[in-house]
């Protein structure tokens, strides 16, 4: 096995291939998370993966580590419970935007208030993909979905403001900028308090096609042309990705 594929030791190969649609970005995030674990040289027995419900919620099943697939929206409370029971464990939450911000939005708010030392990786595909493409808390204004055929009239949730309001770590990345994504996850895992990585990923089958993208590659190119990396700021603009500066207050 080549050095670049050594991260596969964190995955259960008998559970692969992943059940996601062709071109889905979730696999790339799963891979980047494993690469970050590999780079930090984590012990398999020291990490617990928690995930909720949804497309992204399936990711807990692929890890060859202790992993919990929790009830809808309740990934963060379970992760907080694990961390409270055993402080030596590294708890990582991998879940989607609908699960973390929609159904579990209240838990996210209170987890940031308590600043529990867990890492949250949010697969933000801007749609409820598993149920067929309904409008989700992160769907942009004027986006056509199944439930908003004339365009979304409500503005998306400002995740950055929620996280930064309680002085937690926030990073945003996309599935095109894979090196930056890996760096963001590594920084998040090293952070002493609650850390949140917002990963913008493509959902071609239930979101991209309706919006007008031909295939997943076109969506990746859109991320390439639309997002600029800015790692030296306290507050990211809408078309910027980066690791926000964090000051220990």
């Amino acid at each position: 096995m080549e050095d670049t594929m050594r991260f596969k030791r964190f995955l259960k190969e008998e559970n692969l291939p992943t059940p996601w649609c062709p071109g889905c970005g979730n696999g790339q995030i799963l891979k980047s998370a494993c690469q970050a674990f590999e780079e930090l040289n984590f012990d398999k027995r020291q990490v617990v993966i928690v995930s909720g419900i949804g497309c992204a919620g399936r990711s807990a099943g692929f890890f060859d580590m202790d992993s919990v697939h929790t009830a809808h929206g309740r990934a963060i409370p379970v992760a907080e419970g694990i961390k409270t029971a055993n402080e030596n464990l590294k708890v990582v939450v991998l879940s989607g935007d609908g699960d973390l911000l929609g159904i579990g939005g209240n838990h996210l708010l209170h987890a940031t208030r308590r600043n529990t030392p867990i890492s949250i990786i949010c697969y933000s595909n801007e749609i409820y993909g598993m149920t067929g493409g309904q409008v989700s808390p992160t769907t942009r204004l004027n986006t056509k979905t199944v439930t908003t055929p004339e365009g979304n009239k409500d503005c998306p949730v400002n995740v950055q403001a929620i996280i930064k309001a309680h002085n937690c770590f926030y990073a945003r990345s996309t599935t095109f900028h894979l090196a930056h994504l890996k760096k963001s996850i590594i920084e998040a895992l090293r952070h002493p308090g609650l850390s949140f990585v917002d990963v913008i990923c493509q959902c071609i089958v239930n979101n991209g096609r309706r919006v007008g993208f031909k295939d997943a590659f076109e969506m990746l190119m859109y991320y390439k042309n639309n997002y600029k990396i800015n790692d030296n700021t306290e507050l990211l603009k809408e078309n910027e990705i980066g690791i926000t500066r964090w000051t220990s207050a």
Binding site: E2, L11, L16, G27, K31
Partner: peptide, 8 residues
């Protein structure tokens, strides 16, 4: 960029 870990 392979999302399915199919390429090495």
């Amino acid at each position: 960029y392979c999302p399915d870990l199919a390429i090495e």
